[in-house]
Design a protein around this nucleic acid. Sequence first.
DNA 1: CCAGACGTTGTT
DNA 2: GTCTGG
DNA 3: CCAGACGTTGTT
DNA 4: GTCTGG
Length: 227
Amino acid sequence: MCGRATIIDPEGVEQIAVEFHKKFLPDDWKRPRYNIRPTEELPVLRVVDDALELTLLRWGLIPSWAKEPALKFPTFNARGDTLAEKPTYRGPFKNRRCLVLVDGFYEWPKKPSKDRRPRHIRFRDRRCFALAGLWDRWVDRATGIAVESCTIVTTDANELLASVPHDRMPVILDDAARRIWLDQTSDPARLASLLVPHSADDMEMLIANAEFVNHAIDDPRCVEPIG
DNA sequence: CCAGACGTTGTT
DNA sequence: GTCTGG
DNA sequence: CCAGACGTTGTT
DNA sequence: GTCTGG
């Protein structure tokens, strides 16, 4: 699973965008983020009308057919193995795939572990990376106001996450996989082949500070050594 | 046909 | 919107 | 993901 | 316990 994320170095987000010949980031997004939660915005790369764009989308996918934006079920993650079947995700899987750009995420030990301290998972070189994502657009019938939102695709945990212990992790896409995921013409079987756990070889994990992460405090204390 | 659901993780 | 269940 | 609320009538 | 909100 993946229920919190970081963008400690916003320049990394722009660097990935530049690889795709795009750049952006509103000025108010150039500050480091240590504790991004569902319902807040995440930066995503997506293709709209054949044009690649970098934008911010609400984390927690609201299906286009939803009557109300407040759903009775969680949609901040989507299981990779059932994307084509689930009513909430099959449309987005076919037509609205995106890359969610972050440089770390948190996972909590699964219950009944008494250790409730979140772990911060990232690459050793702290680089920004791309998660497989889906998005959708919901329109408020009363006001005509559109809300665009996204979800993060999950897969099995790699050995690093399994050691937490934790069973799931977000799908991390490397360079070639990013292009396939965004390619409108990729077939479902090829897309499915991308939804696997990333190697733990160049990743690292630290015990984060529950006092700050749990209470949604968005500052460096989340990932500072505990002591 | 219409009504109702549409989900994840983790736990059992 | 689209599928499942009754 | 976790934290916090969990309610009503009527009034501003 | 369960749902909503961030």
